[in-house]
C-alpha cells in the first residue's frame, strides 16, 4: 500500500511538472527558444494568488483566475519586450535574454515580497480520501492536481488539434515561413503560445504551492528546471511528450526519494534522463529528423 501511495504522490508531482513542461515545450516548438523565465512566471503566479486570496480576501477560484490573467499579460509583455526584437538573432542570445528576464522577475518579487518564505494557504478545500480501511490516504491536493492536469491535457490537445488557432500553432512550429505564406499571423500565434504557456504556469504555481506550501522568490527555479528536463525527456516540442515526460519524472523522483535516498533523488532523476537521451537522442516521443547533406 505504501508503494501505491508513493506512486500517487509521484503522479501528482509529475502532473505539476507536466503542466509546466507544456509551457516550455509549446514555446520551444514555436519560437525555437528555451524560455528560462518560465519557472519564474510560476512563482509570480503563486504570489498573485497569495496576494489576491490573502490580502484582498478573494475566493480561491477568483484568485486563481486573476493570477491566470496576470500571468498571461506578463507572458505576452515579456515576449513583446524581451524576445521579439531577438527573433532573428542567434538562439543563444535569446537564451541569455531569457536568463536576464528570469533574474529580473526574481528580483522584482524579492523587492515586493521580501526574501522571507510566505506560507501559502492551499486553494483546495477537499477532504482526503481514505481507501482500503485507511491504509491509503490521498490528500485533496493530490487528487485535485491529478484531475486538473488531466482536464488541462485533454483541453490542450483538443485545442491544438481541432481549433483553427491551435492548428495555426502547429503550422508555425512546423515551418514559420510556409505558415506565413498561408496567411497565418505568425506574431499573433507566438503571442498566443506565450499567453497559454503563462496561464498554465499560473495554474501549475497554485497547485505546486498548495502541495508544498512555502513561497519565496526562488520557488519557481527548481521546478522550472525539472519541468524543462521533463520536456526534453519526452521530446521537446511535442505536447504529448511533455505530459508523459512530466509524469514519468515525478514518479521516478517520488519513488527514488522513498526507496533509494532522498538526497540522491535529483541525481537519479537526471541520471535517468541521461540514459534515456543516450538511447533515444530526441527524447521518448521526439521525432527523429533525418539529416540532409
Amino acid at each position: 500500500m505504501q508503494f501505491v501511495s508513493f506512486l500517487v504522490n509521484g503522479i501528482s508531482l509529475g502532473s505539476i511538472y507536466a503542466i509546466i513542461a507544456l509551457g516550455y515545450t509549446m514555446v520551444y516548438g514555436i519560437a525555437r527558444m528555451l524560455n528560462f523565465a518560465h519557472g519564474d512566471v510560476i512563482m509570480i503566479g503563486s504570489y498573485l494568488v497569495f496576494v489576491l486570496m490573502g490580502s484582498l480576501g478573494m475566493p480561491p477560484f477568483v484568485a486563481v483566475l486573476g493570477a491566470m490573467v496576470g500571468c498571461t499579460l506578463l507572458g505576452i509583455t515579456i515576449e513583446r519586450i524581451a524576445y521579439k526584437p531577438l527573433r532573428e538573432a542567434p538562439s543563444l542570445a535569446v537564451l541569455i535574454t531569457a536568463i536576464g528576464v528570469s533574474y529580473l522577475l526574481q528580483n522584482v518579487a524579492l523587492l515586493i515580497w521580501g526574501s522571507n518564505p510566505k506560507s501559502f494557504t492551499s486553494v483546495v478545500k477537499m477532504d482526503p480520501i481514505r481507501l482500503f480501511d485507511g491504509q491509503l490516504v490521498i490528500t485533496g491536493e493530490t487528487l485535485a492536481t491529478i484531475i486538473i492536469s488531466v482536464i488541462i491535457m485533454i483541453a490542450l490537445t483538443l485545442f491544438v488539434n481541432r481549433t483553427k488557432m491551435g492548428r495555426a500553432m502547429l503550422a508555425v512550429s512546423e515551418d514559420k515561413g510556409a505558415a506565413q505564406l498561408m496567411g497565418i499571423n505568425v506574431n499573433r500565434t507566438i503571442s498566443l503560445t506565450f499567453a497559454i504557456g503563462s496561464a498554465l504556469a499560473a495554474i501549475a504555481g497554485v497547485l505546486l504551492c498548495s502541495t508544498y506550501p512555502t513561497l519565496q522568490p526562488t520557488t519557481g527555479a527548481m521546478p522550472g528546471i525539472k519541468a524543462f528536463v521533463a520536456a526534453v525527456f519526452g521530446g521537446i516540442g511535442s505536447i504529448p511528450g511533455a505530459m508523459l515526460g512530466g509524469v514519468l519524472l515525478g514518479v521516478i523522483e517520488s519513488l527514488s526519494k522513498a526507496y533509494i535516498s532522498s538526497q540522491m533523488a535529483d541525481a537519479i532523476v537526471f541520471g535517468v534522463l541521461v540514459i534515456v537521451l543516450l538511447v533515444k537522442p530526441k527524447g521518448i516521443l521526439g521525432k527523429a529528423v533525418k539529416e540532409k547533406v
Binding site: I225, V229, V232, V274, L277
Partner: peptide, 12 residues
C-alpha cells in the same frame, strides 16, 4: 539535447 545533458551532469 546536449545542453540539457550537461545540465543534468552538473546537477548529478
Amino acid at each position: 539535447y546536449l545542453a540539457i545533458v550537461t545540465l543534468a551532469f552538473g546537477e548529478i
